[in-house]
Design a protein around this nucleic acid. Structure first.
Lengths: 247, 247
DNA sequence: ATACATATATGCTGTTGGCATAGAAGTGAT
DNA sequence: ATCACTTCTATGCCAACAGCATATATGTAT
């Protein structure tokens, strides 16, 4: 794709001509915990915004793909691997970071809460409950609450980022059973329904939910059934191996 | 939002510690021309990729919001103002630009073709027809064709960007009559239907399309009717002033 | 006046979502 | 063993809606 003309040009190219912004990735790691949608936040150890809760993030390395940067952040700051992750939006208000111009390429990731058990939570790393009202389609920050339901102090524009992640997720539910990404590999339809309800913040009709999910072709029965419940055990489903196309 | 602690920190902060990427915005300006979905491309005047067709774009200025940068590019490179524009995705493969690390925050914009009449097209700036097959949901480059239907030589990963713009647009049509953004302020329902058909690449049922659009609450009758057509004139509609919320 | 084209209204039908009912399949208490 | 209780799962009904056909309305062209 590169002509010899280009090669000559590249040798003389001075990449320092334009002033450059810093670029970070910030990851909205979502999980269902305590019947609520929660997000992993880390307490900022130093300035700026020291002590406030922020999304795990980091500067994108110069030779690193954006997706890889997001996965690296998940691994290094949350100890998580093999989770569903997808780019969300790029936040670039000039004053969003007091240091200098810092753009954030935001990602969101979905994980089974059970996989996050090993993540050491404490004063520095903790899950917080998300509340997102149903106003508008894109705008609006999320409310982030601690165990006692008190709002937490957050850094930068990270409430906006979480808000958009939830909105995106809500949109996706309309045409995809994405919920499975927040559940263990095998799950019952009712569990999946609860996930949808928690994300949407509304009740869902059980029968039509079942029909819709089964008709989507993205789920298949494992043959196994639930175990250790004090009622009739439900059939366990898994996501169908390589997912169907939409259209 | 900024403590005095931060102030002391900022004074000593050296923003040159981390190597930084360059950041551009590239805009996918879409319009319906000659019964097809077309995109405005500019021929690259110099290296890299000299002579190839590329999306209009430019480096983001250090004090400039991303949205503003996209609007600036539209104004300066396409002579267009007051069009629907929205952030699409950020493309950041490390090798996508041969010069150095360049990330592109891609936007897409929709404009009434009539407004673009004044855009001088020629050897340097031209609309090209888009073909996007129905494979997958996110992936896949668009085919870009010239007047004669021949594929054109494109720069960087811009075919991918155009492909994603069309996919995003197709998705939006499912829950919004976005098509009006590609039409003059007043339009008939059939015109809107044709826009949908061109974007989707499929035929649409006329009756249910009408019903759906009218039920969406986003359109209202102007009272005027079509003029200068050789058949019964249709009622003209416009987008309802401030748009309803979804959900 | 007539042909022609599209607009618009109305009705029929098959599909789908919301809802109710009933039997099935487990656990735990009596 | 039987019963109470819970959730699972299948089935049927009804209302809403998309696809389709038909009929009438309203303009231009000949």
């Amino acid at each position: 794709m590169q002509s010899s003309n280009d090669t000559a040009f590249l040798a003389s190219y001075d990449s320092a001509v334009f002033p450059k912004p810093s670029v970070t990735v910030d990851v909205v790691l979502l999980a269902i915990r305590a019947e609520a949608l929660q997000v992993l936040l880390v307490r900022r150890p130093g300035p700026p915004e020291a002590g406030r809760w922020a999304l795990p993030g980091g500067f994108v390395r110069l030779d690193e793909d954006l997706d890889d940067a997001a996965l690296r952040v998940l691994r290094s700051k949350a100890g998580v691997e093999n989770v569903y992750a997808e780019q969300l939006y790029t936040f670039g208000r000039p004053d969003r970071d007091p240091r200098t111009r810092v753009m954030s390429v935001a990602y969101y990731a979905l994980a089974d809460a059970a996989l996050l058990e090993r993540v050491p939570t404490g004063d520095a790393t903790r899950f917080h409950t998300i509340r997102v009202p149903w106003t508008g389609e894109t705008g609006g920050p999320a409310d982030l609450l601690d165990d006692r339901g008190e709002p937490v102090e957050t850094a930068f524009d990270h409430r906006e980022i979480v808000g958009m992640a939830v909105k995106r997720l809500r949109g996706k539910l309309n045409y995809t059973p994405v919920g499975y990404a927040l559940l263990p590999p095998q799950f019952t339809l009712l569990q999946l329904q609860r996930v949808h309800e928690i994300i949407l913040g509304t009740r869902v009709n059980k029968d039509s939910f079942r029909r819709r999910m089964l008709a989507s072709g993205e789920l298949e029965q494992t043959g196994a059934t639930q175990d250790g419940v004090d009622h009739r055990p439900a059939a366990l489903y898994r996501r169908v191996p390589q997912g169907g196309s939409h259209g």
